[in-house]
Simulated assay, not measured.
Amino acid sequence: MPASPEISFVIPVYNKADVLPYVIRALAAQQPRPDAEYIFVDDASSDASVAVLEREAPAALRMVTVLRNTGNAGPSVRLNQGAAQARGRLLCLIDADELILPDAVALMQQALQLHDADMAHGKVIRSTLPPAQIVPAALGSMPDCRTGDRPLQMILQGRGFVRMTWLVETALFRAAGGCDTRIFIQDETLPLRLAAKAHRLVDFRGGMTLAPQTTSHLSADKRQQHHDRFFAYYNLLADQPALPAKERQLIAATCASIAWKAVRRSGLPLAQFATLGAYLQGKAGMAVSAGFLDRAAAAFRALPGIRQAAPSMQPLLSPSAPPS
Results as ranks from 00 to 15, higher is better:
Pro304Asp: 06
Ala271Trp: 06
Met119Lys: 03
Arg68Tyr: 11
Leu190Glu: 06
Arg78Lys: 15
Asn15Ile: 11
Asp144Gln: 07
Leu192Ile: 14
Gln240His: 08
Glu169Asn: 13
His121Cys: 02
Asp43Gln: 11
Gly158Trp: 06
Ala57Asn: 06
Pro191Gln: 06
Arg55Lys: 15
Thr254Asp: 01
Ala278Ser: 15
Ala259Lys: 03
Tyr38Met: 10
Asp144Ile: 05
Ile24Ala: 02
Asp180Gly: 07
Met1Pro: 09
His227Met: 00
Tyr22Val: 02
Gln308Tyr: 02
Leu236Asp: 01
Ala106Ser: 09
Pro136Phe: 04
Gly206Lys: 11
Gln153Ile: 08
Arg126Glu: 12
Ser324Tyr: 12
Thr170Ile: 00
Ala171Gln: 14
Ala245His: 05
Ala29Val: 04
Asp144Leu: 12
Ala278Asn: 12
Arg163Ser: 13
Phe161Gly: 03
Val10Lys: 02
Pro212Leu: 01
Met63Phe: 11
Met108Pro: 10
Ala73His: 15
Leu243Gly: 09
His121Gly: 06
Ala57Gly: 13
Leu192His: 05
Ala302Phe: 06
Val19Ala: 05
Arg229Phe: 01
Trp260Gly: 00
Met164Phe: 13
Gln85Gly: 11
Ala284Phe: 09
Gly291Ser: 15
Ile251Trp: 05
Phe173Asn: 04
Arg301Asp: 15
Phe184Ile: 05
Arg182Asp: 05
Arg248Glu: 12
Arg89Trp: 02
Val41Gln: 08
Gln249Ile: 03
Ala86Cys: 10
Ala132Asp: 06
Phe161His: 07
Tyr14Lys: 13
Asp149Asn: 14
Arg55Ser: 15
Ala253Ser: 14
Ala111Gly: 13
Ala262Asp: 03
Arg205Trp: 08
Glu247Ser: 06
His199Gly: 08
Leu237Thr: 01
Leu27Lys: 09
Trp166Ser: 11
Ser46Arg: 15
Tyr38Glu: 00
Thr128Asp: 13
Pro21Gln: 07
Glu247Gly: 01
Arg146Ser: 14
Pro34Glu: 03
Leu99Ile: 11
Leu152Ile: 10
Ala29Cys: 05
Val135Tyr: 12
Leu317Tyr: 10
Leu61Ser: 07
Thr65Leu: 14
Lys123Gly: 08
Asp144Lys: 11
Ala253Gln: 02
Phe273Leu: 12
Asp228Tyr: 03
Arg55Cys: 14
Ser320Trp: 08
Ile125Trp: 06
Gly158Glu: 00
Gly82Lys: 01
